[in-house]
Design a protein around this nucleic acid. Structure first.
Lengths: 240, 240
DNA sequence: CAAAAACAAGGTTAATAAAGGTTAATGCCT
DNA sequence: AGGCATTAACCTTTATTAACCTTGTTTTTG
């Protein structure tokens, strides 16, 4: 994870989005997906009603389709920009020419996404706009931890904690253990392990992996409830 | 015309762009076009030399291709972001998948343009990024200081402050520490470090970097909560 | 068919190689 | 000379390889 909060959901309050889109099918999907991401979404299909909605809802960000009946997205954008200089406004449009894009930015848009777009792209660009706006603050580092019986494995720290202390893992230890954890209670293919840790088949006849499996087994031997079982001809079954 | 000056060139001084692109043909065209728009452009083709260029040039915005020899655009972005929280960074890339776009934003990018792109789009997005930055009113909140446990690191001053006094850092000290800070709580590739500090692979068999790591470890030893851990075969994990 | 080679897959341990750490000496500017 | 950057020499730790061991599964053959 990055040091700075370029991808993060808002902390205290939910972020509200004013979404203007006249296509019903697309609108429904986008609204629901954004809501699934924890955003508070008001979806308006009628360009003429947008400003009323805007004033009562007071969103954190606007996502606007350009081609709308009666009034176009550029006009809406200009109106909103007139009220709020720093409001992030993302255009979402089927207009693909550069001239349209330029027009979008000139109208005061802060980003422009061409249709068809992936929802992921919209989400990431919304978050990006919000981050640009609140370009401050530090995010907590990614302290992912995996519980393994009485142990706790910190992949990003290369550490394995237990009651009796902390074991510092080497690069290889960490890689092998991570992959086993990813397949907890399922068989991890020996080949897959070799390929993803060493990225090469030249290790297929080497005993290198076995050495690390042994090392990990030794580390984890303090807790009998977790175990790396060998499935001969297949791989390893990490149970815990 | 927009209500607010969302499209405008910088007022007093010319805007400077650090442009990283290894394709010579494209690079030349883009550089010349941007210069034709009144920008001051430094074009660098070698990813390994970018950080040196960056430090001496001190640009207003960076435009970075992702796929580069030796070091990739994401890494460069993380490094720059570590130094300057508010530096606009636009990715310019042939990678079209949404996953790559997400990766770009996660690395700290502030916009992402897919190739092939029109020069007009690049220009408008550059101007947009500059406007977004200025509209925040954050003219110079860029990392003048970085908190490291009980220390405070002033990259631009080449100083490390602690309760017991101020340590004056050398050029190399500062570069290495800056890069470690950019990847705080994440592994900094040894290779990446060598490339961006020395810009060259001729140091791969030298003990030079180790000497600086030791120096920094000694400086930081007063506070056990921050630590430069070695991940063999990979690099350094700076935790704090 | 059953016992015994032969084989395959993996385990164990030690030795070797590679990566990195430490310290001191050298070079290189002003 | 004095400060930094680099190299050198030597030491420590980690990764890999090698040699040999164990176990289970085929295959061969009496």
């Amino acid at each position: 994870m990055p040091v700075h909060p370029y991808i993060s959901t808002e902390n205290s309050m939910t972020t509200s989005i004013l979404y203007v889109e006249d296509e019903l099918f697309l609108g429904k999907i986008v609204k629901e997906t954004l809501e699934g991401q924890g955003f508070d979404v008001v979806w308006e299909t009628d360009g003429a009603k947008v400003m009323n909605r805007f004033n009562s809802f007071n969103p954190d960000i606007c996502v606007i389709d350009i081609m709308l009946p009666n009034i176009d997205g550029y006009s809406l954008c200009r109106q909103i920009r007139g009220l709020y200089q720093n409001m992030p406004i993302i255009f979402l449009t089927a207009k693909t020419t550069t001239a349209d894009l330029v027009k979008g930015f000139e109208a005061g848009g802060t980003d422009y996404i061409r249709k068809p777009f992936s929802i992921e792209e919209l989400i990431i660009r919304i978050k990006n706009q919000l981050n640009l706006k609140n370009s401050n603050g530090h995010t907590a580092p990614d302290n992912q931890e995996i519980k393994l019986g009485s142990f706790t494995f910190f992949p990003t720290k290369y550490e394995l904690h237990s009651a009796s202390g902390t074991i510092k893992l080497s690069q290889r230890d960490q890689q092998v253990l991570s992959l086993l954890c990813a397949n907890l209670n399922r068989v991890t293919d020996r080949r897959e392990l070799l390929l993803s840790v060493w990225g090469d088949d030249s290790f297929f006849n080497s005993r290198n992996l076995d050495v690390y499996i042994r090392k990990l087994r030794t580390y984890l031997s303090a807790d009998p409830s977790i175990e790396i079982q060998t499935i001969k001809g297949k791989g390893y079954l990490f149970i815990g």
